[in-house]
Simulated assay, not measured.
Amino acid sequence: MTLWSILVLASLACLLLKIIGYLIPEDLVKSGPVRRTADLLPAALLAGLIGTGIAVENQHLAIGPPFAGVATAAVLFWLRVPFLPAVVAAAAVTAVLRLWTQA
């Protein structure tokens, strides 16, 4: 398969999913389990992207400064630290570890 054929097939699949979304009854979409899944799915996908982005390098597990920064933010959020101080602390941990590993 060429790149263009994959692109066309992926586009058609997206169009088909969009059409199916319009055909699903509204009562089914607004039901409890579907609504909860739809609310949690973006967060789960984002967590997966972040996880692979910070812990995988050349298809190998590579735990380094970015992972430490995200872990710092996770712990601070668990301790209910406000958003901005947690992000600043995570960035500081990542920066210090990057400087330390390069030296």
Rank of each mutant, 00 (worst) to 15 (best):
T72S: 11
P82Y: 01
S11K: 08
S5T: 12
M1V: 15
S11G: 15
L3G: 12
L49F: 14
A95N: 03
V75I: 14
A73E: 10
W100T: 15
V70D: 04
V34Q: 02
P42V: 00
L76I: 00
L15W: 06
V29R: 01
I6L: 13
F77W: 10
A55V: 06
A47G: 15
I50W: 01
A13N: 05
I50H: 03
T94H: 08
V93L: 02
L17I: 10
A91Y: 02
W78C: 09
T101M: 10
S5I: 07
V88Y: 03
G69M: 04
L28D: 06
L97M: 14
W78I: 06
S11Y: 06
A89P: 11
F77R: 07
V93F: 02
W100I: 15
V93P: 09
G69Q: 03
L76C: 03
D27C: 06
A89D: 06
A38H: 02
G21E: 02
G48P: 13
A47V: 11
R35W: 02
L3H: 09
D27F: 05
A74N: 03
D27G: 14
F77T: 05
L12V: 09
L15N: 04
V87L: 13
L28H: 07
T37R: 00
R98A: 09
G21V: 02
E26I: 07
L16P: 09
L99S: 12
A44S: 11
L3A: 14
L84F: 13
V34I: 14
A73N: 09
S11I: 13
L61R: 03
F77K: 03
L28S: 10
V96L: 10
R98D: 10
A89L: 06
I19P: 13
V93K: 00
I50G: 09
V88I: 13
V93M: 04
L99D: 07
R36L: 06
I19F: 14
A55G: 08
A74H: 01
I6T: 13
D39K: 11
Y22Q: 13
A95F: 10
Y22S: 12
L3K: 09
P82M: 04
V96H: 04
T94C: 14
V8H: 00
L16C: 14
I54V: 15
P82V: 00
L76T: 04
T52E: 02
L61Y: 05
A62M: 11
A73Q: 09
L28N: 03
F67C: 15
L79C: 10
L99P: 09
